[in-house]
Write a protein that binds this DNA or RNA. Structure first.
Lengths: 142, 142
DNA sequence: AAAATTAGTTACTTTTAGTAACCTAGTTTT
DNA sequence: AAAACTAGGTTACTAAAAGTAACTAATTTT
């Protein structure tokens, strides 16, 4: 497990100070970006949807469903509506038969993707660490 | 709404290509960092807990409960156990009377916090955008 | 004429989240 | 000496969210 320098910790502390200074996390939904904005865009399915739409510029409903393995029609449909509503992606329907519906990230969505991808890279880099931690902990618990 | 350059999009696309190349997102929990690692550390309560433990180096159970406004004993207790289990934080119990239990981020937790804070900064910067998108969309829907 | 296609929706079940009362046990207040 | 308070939870119960599976529309293919 690689260590984090004190320098880096100080930097993060400064950022937090700045953030916590003008953000009141006690506020309920409306005023709090962490609770409101992130709650929608950081749930497990939304993350996968956004990542796939980052990788494949345009995807149709059933294509997303195949890629985001395990998601149900119902939940996919819900997530897509919310993500569209918050401006992360755009839905375009072509009135062909059968209908064709395409989803793609907006510029706003791409902006979010930029940050998300870093978090995902981190997760990819540290997955073994989490898994070994988890196994060790289960041993202690039992 | 500020735009994202094509250059930035290309960078992100490269990162995604690299990631998707050696990660199979179709895998269920064990092999997939996005589903497994992130599902735990990116739910709404965990994010808040980690951010507060970044701002306040050491917090006790009831202190976290006050700061992470609205969380219940049950869910806080569950989240803390999971976050401890995955190695993000450390729990130390002092057998005083009444007992004192302290939580603090591990170095691993700090490493995650570094990425998380960037996502949170993004959310803070773009909250107005999300809210205006949302209102506009609700108008269209109804 | 039956079957397949797309993008969902609906009714139902299971899992997860949230609420509120309770526990332990020593310490302070009455 | 009995009552109330403390910290850090747990427990039983209810509400909300997620997951399952069958169904819909209109048209084209078999």
């Amino acid at each position: 497990m690689e260590t984090i320098t004190e320098n880096q910790k100080v930097k993060v502390a400064k950022k937090l100070k700045k953030m916590f200074g003008h953000v009141d996390l006690r506020d309920t939904t409306l005023a709090c970006p962490v609770r409101d904005v992130m709650a929608l865009a950081s749930d497990k399915w939304s993350i996968l949807i956004i990542l796939y739409l980052g990788y494949f510029p345009v995807l149709r409903f059933n294509q997303i469903k195949k890629k985001v393995y395990g998601i149900s029609n119902k939940v996919l449909s819900e997530r897509l509506k919310h993500l569209e509503g918050d401006g992360y992606l755009k839905r375009t329907m072509y009135p062909e038969v059968p209908v064709r519906v395409e989803y793609k990230l907006t510029d706003f969505g791409h902006s979010y993707l930029q940050k998300l991808i870093e978090l995902t890279e981190w997760a990819e880099m540290h997955k073994e660490c989490v898994i070994s931690n988890r196994n060790r902990f289960q041993g202690v618990e039992a």
